[in-house]
Design a protein around this nucleic acid. Structure first.
Length: 356
DNA sequence: TAGGCCATCTGGTCCT
DNA sequence: AGGACCAGATGGCCTA
């Protein structure tokens, strides 16, 4: 499943990854060192075991033919009508062979561990460049891949259209096929970033950069409860992100039939998110929130689009208030939220929005 | 307790 | 032969 997803998103992710591979290599260095240490330890272990097995085999003279387990293996190999497998005929397993096989297996296990650690390192680095990143509460692997895929698609859509989408549209793009907790997390990140941008200067220490990218992204660090925490379940007056169409290539993103999830559907990659609530995260009330509130911003409830109260839905882009968007009346203009100048590059805005 | 997520082990397959 | 990759099995941990 995971591998299938990897192959599905890999081409897109690879393109993105090529831009920040330098950063990744630096980030990975510590972990790689750790893995290297593991490798060395494993190798030492293996060498010691090999030595011992050599000694054992020498002592046994490689002629332990009376081992019942070994005989059984040989019988299994020779009996039955199954077509013969590839490779040379299996030889009788002596004690030495068993030992060597064990050592091989241990080495293979160590390699597999290392491989998976490398894979996890790459996933960690992917987590850092997708819109939602938290050191304390990581997205699951599958959600990270889904979000990365959506992020790439959303950026591509923005490039094609050449204009900024309204924030709800953007969130919808990002949240396609994500679980509800992750969907809420994305919405929460969006809200947090906006508030932080308005109230807190960005820490240079927390900033990182994507090489070969026009974007300067800023990982925000925040504490939060578990993704599955009920604190950030959707509240009343939800925005139904599913029902919101955001253009060619994205229609029909969220089936509205209310039927059981179709896990085999290419469009469906997890539980459909119930209506996600985008609260007036940009309202004055929330800007007055305490530090504790900021730390646990996911606990906020979001009011919605379709049933949004006037004054709680905010236009963020050309499709927003200035263009008469239906679900964004009182939201400050996008550039007002991010950069305090009028000619901010749109895409830098967009990324800073999520990476502050 | 069930379900989700994860790390690890394991055997099979392919490739060098 | 050995390494890389993969998928299935298993058990631990955590949360609802």
């Amino acid at each position: 499943m995971l591998s299938r997803l990897f192959s599905e998103v890999l081409p897109d992710v690879q393109r993105l990854a090529a831009d920040w591979v330098d950063t990744e290599s630096e980030d990975c260095k510590a972990k790689d060192d750790e893995h290297e240490r593991c490798r060395l330890v494993d190798d030492d272990l293996d060498e010691a075991q090999e030595d011992s097995s050599r000694a054992e085999s020498e002592m046994a003279g490689d002629d332990d033919d009376d081992d019942e387990g070994e005989e059984e293996e040989c019988e299994d190999e020779n009996s039955g009508d199954k077509p013969k497998k590839r490779g040379p005929k299996k030889r009788k397993m002596t004690a030495a062979r068993v030992e060597r096989s064990k050592v091989r297996r241990m080495k293979a296990n160590a390699r597999e561990r290392t491989r998976m650690h490398d894979l996890n390192s790459a996933l960690d680095n992917l987590r850092k460049v997708v819109p939602c990143y938290s050191k304390t509460q990581k997205l699951s692997k599958i959600e990270t891949l889904r979000l990365a895929k959506n992020y790439i698609l959303a950026l591509g859509e923005i490039l094609r259209n050449g204009k900024r989408p309204d924030v709800v549209t953007y969130v919808q793009m990002l949240c396609k096929g994500l679980s509800q907790p992750t969907t809420n997390l994305v919405a929460g990140c969006l809200q947090l970033n906006t508030r932080n941008f308005l109230t807190e200067p960005c820490s240079e220490g927390a900033r990182f950069h994507m090489p070969s990218s026009p974007f300067s992204v800023h990982p925000y660090s925040y504490r939060c409860s578990r993704l599955s925490s009920p604190h950030y379940q959707s509240g009343s007056g939800a925005i139904n992100l599913r029902s919101h169409s955001y253009g060619p290539g994205y229609e029909g993103v969220y089936p509205t039939g209310g039927t059981s999830p179709d896990y085999s559907s290419p469009d469906y990659e997890g539980q459909h998110s119930p209506p996600v609530c985008l609260n007036g995260g940009l309202s004055g009330r929330q800007q007055e929130s305490s530090d504790a509130d900021r730390n646990y911003h996911y606990s906020m409830h979001y009011s919605g689009l379709t049933t949004a109260r006037p004054g709680h839905s905010i236009p963020f882009g050309p499709s927003g208030a200035r263009s008469g968007g239906a679900h964004s009346e009182n939201i400050p203009p996008f550039h007002d939220v991010h950069l305090h100048h009028d000619r901010a590059p749109p895409y830098e805005d967009l990324n800073a929005f999520f990476h502050n």
